[in-house]
């Protein structure tokens, strides 16, 4: 039996949570557990209005953890995130699901977190302090604390791309999700960030792809090479959507197609 505790502020919720409770954001993942009788005995939530705030100062954007996908889609200043938010769940789920919740959503969910990983977002915790999203994602299964907000640097025009491969149109869940931040100096790629969903237990960086891109001009020959090697070092899961073998086979193909489309080819 699940008891729900609602607090007026995030800070109070964070103090109350303890080790026997789970935090509930938009509910799209947690309520399913509640319905199935699989949720912890205590659920903690908050009505803190600060969580739903979107703040933009120049290219520094801060998303409250409780900002919904629909709120992002309704904000014209967040246009670079629209292709991501539009691909999350169904219209109903986008009205409920939050940025903070997406970070903790298990495979095959959590496509927004894949984008945040590529964008090198920083996460501000309720307890104070900020850390790279990559670090938080690595430890997300070990009670890392509550998220207050996420700072997302706005990418240079054309530098960010996102692709979700799914079997069902228009709203299937992810077979593979790819987010790519490709900055260039003098036409050559510098410090690209490639993030994968569906290619590991959660969102992961694509080290092999990033290495292959480093210092390169993007042309057909380079993309063909990238397509062959991008999945190296990754250990994708087998699930009802696809096998590990299949994900590995096509990951590079989809990455190359994404980069090609970002080139306008």
């Amino acid at each position: 039996m699940t008891v729900v505790e609602t607090y007026p502020t995030l800070a109070e919720a964070a103090r109350a949570i303890g080790s026997d409770a789970a935090y509930m954001g938009g509910g799209t993942v947690m309520m399913r557990e509640v319905n199935a009788g699989e949720a912890p005995a205590r659920l903690v939530r908050t009505n803190d209005p600060a969580l739903a705030q979107i703040r933009a100062a120049g290219d520094a954007i801060s998303l409250g953890a409780g900002v919904t996908m629909s709120a992002i889609l309704a904000d014209s200043g967040l246009d670079f995130l629209h292709p991501v938010a539009r691909q999350i769940g169904s219209p109903q789920v986008r009205n409920m699901g939050t940025v903070g919740g997406n970070i903790f959503s298990p495979h095959p969910y959590g496509d927004f977190a894949v984008a945040l990983l590529a964008l090198d977002a920083r996460v501000t915790m309720a307890a104070g302090g900020a850390r790279p999203i990559e670090e938080l994602l690595r430890g997300r299964d070990h009670s890392p604390g509550l998220v207050a907000s996420i700072d997302v640097p706005r990418p240079a025009p054309g530098a960010f791309g996102f692709k979700k491969v799914s079997r069902v149109k228009p709203k299937g869940v992810s077979v593979i999700t790819i987010a790519a931040l490709v900055n260039r100096t003098g036409g050559r790629v510098q410090n690209a960030r490639i993030a994968w969903g569906g290619m590991g237990p959660g969102p992961v960086r694509g080290a092999a792809a990033e290495r292959a891109l480093q210092g390169q001009m993007i042309d057909d020959a380079m993309l063909d090479r990238l397509a062959r090697t991008a999945a190296e070092g990754l250990d994708p899961p087998t699930d009802p959507l696809a096998s590990s073998w299949y994900r590995r086979e096509v990951a590079g193909v989809h990455l190359a197609r994404l980069l090609r489309s970002m080139e306008g080819r």
């Binding site: 079997r167 069902v168 149109k169 228009p170 299937g172 869940v173 009802p240 959507l241």
Partner: peptide, 14 residues
């Protein structure tokens, strides 16, 4: 599969 996200069926876009 135990839900409609994993039990695949074509959507209206298919």
């Amino acid at each position: 599969a135990v839900d409609f996200n994993h039990y695949l069926m074509p959507g209206p876009g298919d």
